[in-house]
Design a protein around this nucleic acid. Structure first.
Lengths: 128, 128
DNA sequence: GAGGAACCCTACCCTCACGTGAGGGTAGGG
DNA sequence: CCCTACCCTCACGTGAGGGTAGGGTTCCTC
């Protein structure tokens, strides 16, 4: 038996994403096209699930799907074994830039929490 | 002189919202139609600015513009002096419901921060 | 091997909260 | 009168999916 493949509904269950979302990610090439069953059903590997979980963790940072694709692709290429030194250091540089951006977005996210907390307190007070 | 009115650009500066956003809020009736200059320029009061700032604080909670309008309208009506007892308690009830929703959304927002932090750590580690 | 439940497919239109651009008018100083 | 900075409306575009129609596939059960 080949490594057990999942159909889209299983992937949705495992990731908490909707079918529509998963297909959409494929449309914009954030997720590679999966294999298909003879009848045309999408069949996903565990790798695909991991990629989706990674994307899900990234989502609150308000990146566009394109940025996420870019970032993940860099990361994936870096994980490959035989890679020229120049290429590797270029990729690392780009990843570092993304990391800075991530920290920045994280800051903004935290501000948003504070802003929301302020509103919640205000509302709480008004109710008495 | 009447209370000094601001034109839309000033309001944008003061609130950090874009002109387009402010006009959009008016389109969907989240913001009441402002006065106009003889030539048609929008002229806003300080009250309008406050309403926008309130909206801005509310935004991270991912409410729809319609929900915000509803919530703010309730709050505004509650702030009015002569209000029947029945009406008042109905409004308070609705406000309380929103408050619960706010707390709920706040929880989700905090989860998102954690999720994003996890991602940031992971990325940081991968870079070394 | 016939049925049927549960699942999946594509194609398409819809939503929400704005962004963007074209084309043109207004405010107010020189 | 002219200039610059600012404003106006109108209309279409965008990103990230949601929803639905109409139909095919898998697989279990009889």
């Amino acid at each position: 038996m080949s490594t057990d493949l999942l159909q889209i509904g299983d992937v949705a269950d495992r990731t908490g994403l909707s079918l529509r979302t998963i297909r959409h990610y494929e449309e914009v090439e954030l997720l590679p096209e999966p294999q298909r069953s003879p009848g045309g059903f999408r069949l996903y590997s565990e790798q695909a699930v991991e990629r989706l979980l990674l994307i899900k963790r990234m989502k609150p940072l308000d990146f566009t799907l394109e940025q996420m694709r870019d970032l993940i692709d860099i990361r994936d290429e870096l994980a490959r074994p035989r890679l020229g030194r120049a290429r590797r250091s270029e990729l690392t540089e780009r990843l570092r830039a993304y990391h800075a951006l991530v920290e920045h977005q994280l800051g903004r996210l935290r501000e948003r929490v504070e802003s929301a907390e302020a509103f919640a307190r205000q509302l709480g007070d008004e109710i008495d």
